[in-house]
Nucleic acid binder design. Structure first.
Length: 573
RNA sequence: CGGGAUGUGGCGCAGUUUGGUAGCGCGUCCGCUUUGGGAGCGGAAGGUCCUCGGUUCAAAUCCGGGCAUCCCGACCA
């Protein structure tokens, strides 16, 4: 049966909604796909649900193809399971909590590693049952501090999460590759432009992980990519090419300068310009940031035009706890002069010196003199101070050389649509996930976990597939293949429905606009809704001629009605 | 969690400065006309002005508390 607009809940808005900003959000609301129920919580209307179902279908087909078995857990998860893995504290306020009438605590699952691990621990006991891939398509709940951009970042969202269980590392690698390939096929089928980038494992633990990013200005992630080779990484995880080793230039012995009122990098550059003949920039200054590592001070050195990325530092020094060295910490260490710290002599004070790769041996710097209102010039790495450890803790910038081939990297924004991890045995250890091996002895299972945001994919595709008139869905995601627009009142509506039924019989999904409305309204709505093929049944309908338009290209041609099917399906192939 | 803004029929907004009958456009319903690019005329329905309290003869408007929503940042698979 064709969908007749006159009998369906399809309401488009003439004006942009006031609370929507990014294109996908604005258009999904305006074209009648979704409605906001609360901050970060959305209702899927019939039109939107079709798109969501299409994305889910593609995801399921590709998961089934790699041997995934679908299950469905409850969104309600007993709180104790999150206690066991320590993620209660990790997630904190992000968890939606629920208490039942008996006082038992639940959380609305923000992700389901725990439940999958428990299931497999309980049900699987032999190596013969592995490898195993389980997945579900389920709502996830995260009480984000700031939901935004509509379904792009909701507090409730639909996600496919899958988990692989293998006996050994080779098996895990193979399950990981299978998922990677499945995700590629999913993105390809959805018509999504995407990149696979190296990622940081973050709160999930585990080792190797990659993200599937859909480039878009509305995205919240930043990634670097190389236009010359295939290097790409989330800025959180990007490595940086080491600089050429500095020439062992003959630099005068370090010289201490009086620099009143210039504790910061910018202040210091201005002070040099005003009083010391200038000639230095931020990049010539050695930025010395003090952190507390398990409470003890550590100096981290980066060039003055760079920032230390605290997240990366924490990741590099884990499991040690990294804190910002605050005023009270400085008060307790009078030998560390806030604003005038330099690496010279730190070894003697028992303070480790960590440095970015750019602080190469032999490079000369302007830096703090460890004395109030004094800086030092000509301080040379390897001569005036030693670096205890080289760390990669600086966020990459545009034009950074590619670590693989040296070309200038580019930086872009993107939407994270998928993330795949080789988890290893983190959860298996917590839940004692063992199977009996061929020799009758228990083997600890190794896991992978793989997530793809189904509802977010809808928004990501919308972000990449729209123009000033509205949405323009790729075939596989579109709520319908064909949108028949009946114009005129000389039986066009009946003709359109009849033509629509023939197209449906041939396997196409068809929407017919048989509403009593002016041509302008119907044509504008068709473009707003964004079905790929728009067929106008209008003034030449009586002679059997209709107009077939392509939503994306805007091209149109008149055809006999009985040629429409061929014209549309040919284009699809 | 910091900063900014907003809250008035279904949607978009004006009205708040200077307190005094709640308005406009779109949408919706009825009738007639109209049908290839958001039609015309006539009629109609629909509002606790976010909420609670205060000031006042009188509050959408002034004052205070609260709530909600959006944007920037922090956070965040």
């Amino acid at each position: 049966m064709v969908t007749r607009m006159s009998a369906t809940l399809h309401r488009t808005l003439r004006e942009d909604p006031a609370d929507a900003d990014v294109p996908s959000h604005r258009l999904l609301i305006r074209a009648g796909y979704v409605r906001r129920a609360a901050a970060g919580v959305y209702t899927w209307l019939p039109l939107g649900l079709r798109v969501l179902a299409n994305v889910s279908r593609v995801v399921r087909e590709e998961m089934d193809r790699i041997g995934g078995q679908e299950v469905l857990f409850s969104a309600l998860v007993p709180r104790e399971h999150y206690q066991a893995t320590g993620r209660l504290a990790e997630y904190g306020d992000l968890l939606f909590s629920v208490r039942d009438r008996r006082g038992v605590d639940f959380v609305l699952g923000p992700t389901h590693e725990e439940m999958f691990s428990l299931l497999v621990a309980a049900e699987v006991s032999s190596y013969r049952e592995l490898p195993l891939i389980l997945y579900q398509v389920q709502h996830k709940y995260r009480d984000e501090a700031r939901p935004r951009s509509g379904v792009l970042r909701g507090r409730e969202f639909l996600m496919k999460d899958s988990y692989s269980f293998d006996l050994d590392d080779a098996g895990l690698a193979s399950s990981y590759r299978a998922h990677r390939d499945a995700y590629r096929r999913i993105c390809d089928r959805l018509g999504l432009e995407y990149r696979i980038v190296r990622a940081q494992s973050g709160a999930m633990g585990g080792s190797h992980s990659e993200e599937f990013l859909a480039p878009s200005p509305s995205g919240e992630d930043t990634f670097v990519w190389c236009p010359e080779c295939d290097y790409a990484a989330n800025t959180e995880a990007a490595t940086i090419a080491p600089p050429a080793t500095a020439d062992p230039v003959r630099v005068d012995p370090a010289e201490t300068l009086h620099t009143p009122g210039a504790p910061g990098i910018g202040d210091l550059v201005r002070y040099f310009d005003a009083h010391l003949g200038g000639g230095i920039g931020a990049r010539d200054i050695l930025k010395c940031v003090v952190f507390g590592v398990d409470g003890a001070p550590v100096v981290v050195l980066v060039p003055g035009d760079r920032e230390v990325d605290t997240d990366r530092l924490a990741a590099a020094l884990a499991p040690a706890k990294v804190t910002v060295f605050g005023p009270e910490d400085f008060a307790a260490r009078p030998d560390l002069v806030r604003g005038y710290v330099g690496p010279q002599g730190m070894a003697g004070r028992g303070v480790p010196v960590y440095a970015d790769q750019r602080v190469a041996s032999g490079s000369a710097w302007v830096t703090g003199a460890n004395r109030y209102e004094h800086h030092a010039r000509g301080v040379v790495a390897g001569r005036d101070f030693d670096v205890d450890r080289v760390l990669d803790v600086v966020r990459p910038q545009p034009d950074e050389p590619c670590p693989t081939c040296g070309a200038a990297l580019r930086v872009d924004r993107a939407i994270e649509v998928g993330h795949i991890f080789q988890l290893g045995r983190k959860y298996a250890d917590v839940f004692g996930l063992d199977v009996l091996g061929p020799d009758g002895r228990p083997v600890r299972v190794t896991m992978g976990c793989y997530g793809i945001g189904v509802s977010r994919l809808v928004a990501a595709v919308a972000e990449q597939s729209h123009d000033e008139r509205g949405l323009a869905w790729p075939e596989e995601v579109a709520p319908y293949h064909v949108h028949l627009v009946a114009l005129g009142r000389a039986g066009q509506a009946a003709q359109a429905v009849a033509l629509g039924e023939r197209l449906e019989a041939a396997g196409l999904r068809v929407l017919v606009d048989d509403r009593i409305a002016s041509p302008g309204v119907k044509l504008t709505d068709a473009e707003l809704i964004g079905v790929p093929h728009i067929v106008v049944v209008g003034r030449r309908a009586a002679e059997g001629v209709v107009e077939v338009r392509d939503r994306r290209s805007g091209t149109a041609r008149e055809l006999p009605a009985d040629k429409v099917l061929a014209a549309i399906t040919r284009k699809q192939d």
